[in-house]
Design a binder for these strands. Structure first.
Length: 195
DNA sequence: AAAACGATCTACT
DNA sequence: GTAGATCGTTTTG
């Protein structure tokens, strides 16, 4: 049974949510058909001391949904592509988890059609590519990922410790580097050279 | 109103 | 591994 992750799942530190989103299922039920993908790479953006976070310099029109309640989508455009985040922590605390890559599970044909590419590797590997494959765009900014809308995230098979890779990211103004990027080890659908 | 800036992707080597 | 494309959002004048 595919069951949505509850809103309370997202009401935690973004790094914890990023780690636990690995293995979950991204689902879009559109007019054109259903696409399902297994989340294999994520990245956390912190509410404080994170210069790489879009909310670092306060709220703008673009990042407003990051300041909203947990479990909402934050969708923004960058370099002519869309990127999907899950908002974390309570309203007023602007943090989120970027979905960086998913493994195609259902709807390969539809994904290939939307992407204009046939090769499976190129369907959903990367935040911009997966949004194109899932037809995610600005219309989903601020929508609920835990409700009964067309775009949602379901619990999947949690990854074991040995299957989980982690790496650091610069941009955090703390003395030590923080582990903010999470990925499925040995999965060919992760976008980074990690592995 | 104009310019600068990317949480990226593709093509090519 | 990297150069170049690309366009919505933000910042600046």
């Amino acid at each position: 049974m595919r069951r949505p992750l509850r809103q309370s799942f997202y009401d935690r530190e973004p790094a914890v949510v990023a780690r636990e989103l690995l293995g979950a299922l991204l689902i879009h039920n559109s007019e054109d058909g259903m696409t399902v993908g297994r989340i294999v790479e994520t990245e956390a953006y912190l509410a404080e001391n994170d210069t790489a976070c879009h909310a670092y310099r306060g709220m703008t029109r673009r990042n407003a949904s990051m300041f909203g309640p947990p479990g909402m989508a934050y969708v923004y455009a960058i370099h002519s592509r869309w990127c999907l985040n899950a908002v974390t922590q309570p309203a007023g605390t602007a943090s989120a988890v970027l979905i960086r890559a998913v493994e195609p599970i259902e709807g390969h044909e539809l994904m290939a059609q939307r992407r204009g590419r046939e090769r499976e590797l190129e369907l959903c590997r990367g935040p911009g590519r997966l949004c194109q494959a899932f037809a995610v765009d600005r219309r989903f900014d601020g929508s609920e990922l835990f409700g009964d809308g067309p775009l949602w995230i379901a619990s999947g098979s949690p990854l074991s410790e040995s299957e989980t890779g982690v790496s650091t990211r610069i941009g955090v103004t703390s003395a030590q580097d923080l582990e903010l990027r999470f990925f499925h080890r040995n999965c060919r659908f992760v976008s980074r050279g990690s592995r």
